[in-house]
C-alpha cells in the first residue's frame, strides 16, 4: 500500500476515535465517503491514471473504502445503542414513590375464623345449614330437651320478644330444623349469630356459634372424638387435648373438649388461668329425647353434636383481650386482620 494511503487510513482511525456522537460519525462519513469525500475524490481521479496503474490503485482504494465503511457502520450501531440507552435512562422517575393501588380491605376477624372452621368441616363432608335468629321457644329449648323452669335455662339468659319468641341463645335449633327436613345419614354444620343477656369483657349480648351434627346408624362417641380431634389439629396444630364430662340437656353423654393452652404450651398462664388447658368446644352424643322430638328412630340412629363460640376462638387466635372490640367497628382495630 502506498504511503499516502496508509496515512489516510491512519488519519481516519485517529479521527474516528475522537468521534463521540452519531453526528460526528456522520461528519466523518461525509469527509471520507461523501460526494466530495477524499475516497470518492480519489476514485474519481482514477480515470486520469495510466491503465496499468489504474487497476492496482483502484483495488487499493476500494479496499480502504470498504474498511472505512464497515468501521463506520459498526461504530454507528454501537453509538446509536448507547445514545438510546442514555435517552431512556434520562426518563428515570423517582422509584421510591409509592405504587398506585387500592389496598385490600379485611374480613371481620369473627367471619375470618368462622370461615376457617367451616372450611375444615366442609372438607370433611359436612354441609352448611341455616336457621332463623328469631326463634320459637320450642326450637330453642323444648325440642332440645330444655323444659321451662329448668335450671339449665339459666346457663343461657334469654332475650324475649313481645310475641313470646326468643332471640336464639344457641345455634342448636338449626339441628332440629335440619333433622325435621332431612333423613339420616347426615353431617351438618350451622353457623350464625346467637344472643344472650350478658355483657362484659368476655361476654357479648350477641355472638356467633358454630354447631355441628352427625347422625347415622353406627355413630359412636369414638366417632365424635376422632372427628373433633381432626378439627382441632387442623385448626390449632397437633397438640395435647382432653375430653371432660359435662352437661348439656341435648346431649348425653356430654363432654367439653380442652386443648393444651396455645399461649403457654401447658405450663400455665393468665389466659388459661394456670391450668395449662383451654376449653374449645362442647359436645356429646345426641340425647334420644332430641331424636324423639324430630321423630327419628332412637334405636336405629345415633349421633353426636358439638358447638363452639367463634368469638372466643378468634380472641384466642388473634390475642384480642376485650370482646367488645369486635363489635365497635373501629377501623384501627379492623384493619389489623
Amino acid at each position: 500500500m502506498s504511503e499516502s494511503h496508509t496515512n489516510l487510513l491512519q488519519q481516519y482511525h485517529s479521527e474516528k476515535k475522537s468521534a463521540k456522537t452519531t453526528a460526528e460519525l456522520e461528519a466523518l462519513r461525509v469527509k471520507y465517503l461523501g460526494k466530495k469525500g477524499e475516497i470518492t475524490q480519489q476514485l474519481k481521479g482514477l480515470g486520469k491514471l495510466p491503465p496499468d496503474e489504474r487497476k492496482a490503485r483502484g483495488a487499493e482504494i476500494n479496499k480502504i473504502k470498504t474498511e472505512i465503511q464497515e468501521s463506520l457502520e459498526t461504530s454507528m450501531r454501537d453509538l446509536a445503542l448507547k445514545e438510546q440507552e442514555a435517552k431512556l435512562q434520562a426518563e428515570k422517575p423517582d422509584h421510591s414513590l409509592p405504587g398506585l393501588f387500592n389496598s385490600p380491605g379485611t374480613l371481620h376477624p369473627v367471619d375470618r375464623v368462622a370461615q376457617e372452621i367451616a372450611d375444615i368441616f366442609l372438607s370433611m363432608g359436612f354441609f352448611m345449614a341455616e336457621g332463623p335468629e328469631i326463634e320459637e321457644e320450642y326450637y330453642n329449648f323444648e325440642a332440645l330437651n330444655v323444659p321451662s323452669h329448668h335450671p339449665a335455662r339459666e346457663m343461657q339468659d334469654t332475650f324475649y320478644l313481645e310475641s313470646g319468641q326468643v332471640l336464639r341463645t344457641q345455634t342448636s335449633p338449626v339441628q332440629i330444623r335440619t333433622m325435621e327436613m332431612l333423613q339420616p345419614p347426615l353431617k351438618m354444620i350451622g353457623l350464625g349469630k346467637v344472643f344472650r343477656r350478658d355483657s362484659d369483657i368476655t361476654h357479648s349480648p350477641m355472638f356467633h356459634q358454630m354447631e355441628g351434627l352427625v347422625v347415622g346408624e353406627q355413630i359412636s362417641m369414638s366417632d365424635l372424638k376422632g372427628t373433633l380431634i381432626m378439627f382441632v389439629e387442623n385448626m390449632f396444630g397437633k397438640r395435647p387435648y382432653r375430653f371432660r364430662p359435662s352437661y348439656f340437656p341435648f346431649t348425653e353423654p356430654s363432654a367439653e373438649m380442652d386443648i393444651q393452652c396455645i399461649f403457654c404450651e401447658g405450663k400455665g398462664c393468665k389466659v388459661c388461668k394456670g391450668t395449662g388447658w383451654m376449653e374449645v368446644l362442647g359436645c356429646g352424643m345426641v340425647n334420644p329425647r332430641v331424636f324423639e322430638a324430630v321423630k327419628y328412630d332412637t334405636e336405629k340412629y345415633t349421633g353426636f353434636a358439638f358447638g363452639m363460640g367463634i368469638e372466643r376462638i378468634a380472641m384466642l387466635r388473634y390475642g384480642i383481650n376485650d370482646i367488645r372490640l369486635l363489635f365497635n367497628s373501629d377501623i384501627r382495630f379492623l384493619r389489623q386482620f
Partner: peptide, 26 residues
C-alpha cells in the same frame, strides 16, 4: 351410659371417624 363412660374415662375411648356419607346439600 354417660356414667359408664365417665368411669371408663372419656380419654380412654378410642378415636374413629364416622363411616357414613352425608346426604348432599350444596
Amino acid at each position: 351410659i354417660e356414667e359408664v363412660a365417665r368411669m371408663y374415662g372419656y380419654n380412654n375411648i378410642p378415636e374413629t371417624l364416622p363411616a357414613i356419607t352425608s346426604v348432599l346439600k350444596l
